[in-house]
Amino acid sequence: MSANPNWEPGTFFHLHEEDPVEEYENFKLGMWIFLATEVLLFGGIFAGLFIFKYNWPEVFRLGSQALDWKLGSVNTVILLCSSYTMAMAVDGAQRGKNKQLKLNLLLTLLFAFGFLVVKYFEWSSKFSYGYFPGSDLFFSVYFMSTGLHLLHVLIGMSFIGLVYFRARQERYHEENFGGVEVCGLYWHLVDLIWIFLFPLLYLLRH
């Protein structure tokens, strides 16, 4: 960020300059550590899932059967594709190919939007059948975990939107792609969480 002369040095809008390579590495390590906290945040819900499944196997079996694994699979594929396009966006930024970067960011946003649409239909069908958080423990776990995941999808989408906005200003190139890569890390985490949520919620029907 360039220094804003209206602010004193050492204030939010007027930072010291840092070595770009160092800044890039710090930024990335910072994001990895933040992802560690995210894993633990979801870890609490996963722990709840396993414990309640252990205590109430029947509730979880019936709940799992009530979910539509086809919609879940579609969403899994969508998120995997979005992860791929995000990785390609980072690749584009690393190689200084701004077009590749922008195209892939848009595709990622598109996939993310697709995920939201599928989720909308999934949730509304559950509501119409009378399944709500609190209906039983399975649906509490289901709505809490997918809800928290959904929140992360939305945060990730805003992050990608910001990066896209900056990519249009041609801010990213071979020497400066930390922002894209860190955004990618966050988005991949959203995918990672879903990779575990999908089988545990949809596929354990026996």
């Binding site: 992860s83 990785a87 990618g184 890390l185 991949h188 990672l192 990779i195 999908f198 089988p199 545990l200």
Partner: peptide, 18 residues
Amino acid sequence: AIAVASCKATLVILFFMH
């Protein structure tokens, strides 16, 4: 289920996330 998910996660971490 957990083993397959772990394999998928490993792939994402190793390659997509560098």
